[in-house]
Amino acid sequence: MASDEGLAVEAVNEALADAPPDTSARIRRVQVGEVSGNYVTLAVVGVARRDAETGAVEWTDGGPW
Rank of each mutant, 00 (worst) to 15 (best):
residue 62 G to V: 05
residue 22 D to I: 06
residue 56 A to C: 09
residue 53 E to T: 14
residue 8 A to C: 06
residue 58 E to A: 08
residue 36 S to Y: 04
residue 7 L to T: 01
residue 28 R to P: 06
residue 4 D to A: 01
residue 51 D to N: 15
residue 37 G to W: 07
residue 61 D to Y: 07
residue 25 A to P: 00
residue 30 V to R: 10
residue 60 T to K: 00
residue 51 D to H: 15
residue 18 D to R: 00
residue 15 A to K: 03
residue 35 V to F: 02
residue 65 W to E: 00
residue 26 R to Y: 06
residue 5 E to A: 02
residue 57 V to S: 12
residue 54 T to S: 14
residue 13 N to W: 00
residue 5 E to Y: 08
residue 15 A to D: 00
residue 37 G to R: 09
residue 8 A to Y: 02
residue 47 V to A: 06
residue 28 R to D: 10
residue 27 I to R: 09
residue 37 G to K: 08
residue 51 D to I: 14
residue 36 S to C: 03
residue 45 V to I: 15
residue 30 V to T: 11
residue 8 A to I: 04
residue 39 Y to N: 15
residue 25 A to T: 03
residue 46 G to Y: 13
residue 26 R to N: 12
residue 24 S to P: 08
residue 1 M to Y: 10
residue 46 G to D: 14
residue 6 G to S: 14
residue 31 Q to Y: 13
residue 43 A to W: 04
residue 4 D to R: 05
residue 8 A to F: 06
residue 37 G to C: 11
residue 62 G to Y: 08
residue 37 G to M: 10
residue 52 A to R: 14
residue 9 V to C: 04
residue 14 E to V: 08
residue 27 I to Y: 09
residue 38 N to Q: 15
residue 34 E to T: 01
residue 19 A to W: 07
residue 19 A to L: 10
residue 2 A to Q: 13
residue 29 R to C: 03
residue 63 G to T: 05
residue 55 G to A: 02
